[in-house]
Design a protein around this nucleic acid. Sequence first.
DNA 1: CGACTCATTGAGCGAAGTCAACGTCCGTGG
DNA 2: CCACGGACGTTGACTTCGCTCAATGAGTCG
Lengths: 250, 250
Amino acid sequence: MVSRDQSAMVAFVDRLNRRSSLSHAECGALLELRGRVSVARANIDIVSPGQRTDHACLVLDGMAGRFGQVANGQRQITALHIVGDMCDLHSIVAPRAGWALQALAPTSIMQVPHEQLLDIAQTYPNVARAFWRDCSVDASVLSQWLVNVGRLDARARLAHLICEMGVRMEEAALGVRTGFILDMSQDQIADALGLTPVHVNRTLKVLREEGVLELSRRFVRILDWELLVVIAEFDPHYLQIEPDAMRRAA
Amino acid sequence: MVSRDQSAMVAFVDRLNRRSSLSHAECGALLELRGRVSVARANIDIVSPGQRTDHACLVLDGMAGRFGQVANGQRQITALHIVGDMCDLHSIVAPRAGWALQALAPTSIMQVPHEQLLDIAQTYPNVARAFWRDCSVDASVLSQWLVNVGRLDARARLAHLICEMGVRMEEAALGVRTGFILDMSQDQIADALGLTPVHVNRTLKVLREEGVLELSRRFVRILDWELLVVIAEFDPHYLQIEPDAMRRAA
DNA sequence: CGACTCATTGAGCGAAGTCAACGTCCGTGG
DNA sequence: CCACGGACGTTGACTTCGCTCAATGAGTCG
């Protein structure tokens, strides 16, 4: 357990360090962060809308999503978080949650107190900058999703999501971009893409028949990455990953 | 000219101050910010995609939007900025622009050097926090747009945009929520909503025939605010405006 | 006046949604 | 160990919202 917690925290610090460069002392301080660990079953709120939080949520295991909801009950996922993501970093500056944070699969979360994060941010302004930068990456992803949902058809949108998650999984050392566990149901994928589950299913079938990818038992295997990138119009720039990783995605 | 520049800067500081509370000294320092003023005609890039900037853009006059683009040439607006908005605040931590920032109408911009902003942020950590918070509000708006584009139909989406801009215009003292200038063409509105211009036109007609609003010569007159809010499923919470303004929107 | 941009309207089409049935996997408890 | 139930995935038939293509109108500026 301890090692699992630790490895997620390492992934988080790596993630920050890949986009901002942190000193040894700064990394060390971040790695000292600790919080209460809680477990959520799939489709259970980790943070409820309107709730005021005093902690940020580090994903230790599983997967989480941010959900918007409309009057007729339909939902839209606005962010997906994998192991090593600090979902709620922005809650430091905006502690009242606007949306639900929910587990997509059985998920463990470490609740890192704002207090600890603020301490580090005050001691190391460079870390504060790294936090802000991390939030701006999330916003960049959000922009890309808006473009996709607004202007791409179902096939391209689905392909784009798979590309993004592949690159992110690889970045977080949770798999390779051509083979990784995407621990979401087709219903949840539909909520991320602004589609219906039925249409996601049909669209997956199309991609399968094109020989681009396979998705079964929540494992994605990409058979033709190059083609998938073309279908998705995927340009990993928006993920703001280090140059190395970006070159490999082209 | 000087007074116009000054009033936009005042609007920006007010905006920050409404969400974070700044001291007199902090406000004073912000009001000292100065930069080169440039003017852009409609549909001309203020910042081009991929460009590395050393300044943030304060809208002095007119209106600007952030544009994403897909392979077939379609565009998606991911953010709208009105007078007093610092469009590019996040460029302080992520100076490479991912998307185009374009004028929607004839627009004046003050290019505020990052250097000045960083100076203030270093001197006053509280201001750094306010900047970060302002970025998180932008992200919150982005989330709401994603939910709208993903899950609302054209009528609700259009109604929502009008509600949002009404409240923002009123907040920035550029009009009242039931009557304001929305300096965008129907083509641009379509790009903001993920629709086609033709469908925006038809949808406007529906709202006009329902007696909810009028939009002509870029002036919006809302005849039935309450109804518009219902149609849009508009809840201004996500704009994170001060309690006063929020109460009035309900 | 003419050229241009922007707004309006019609007719037909197509991508995605809706409704509904059925299949598959898996955990649970008799 | 098997029968049941529930969640998830698959497929078909039909509908609909928004798109495409195209023509025309209205306002504006040189």
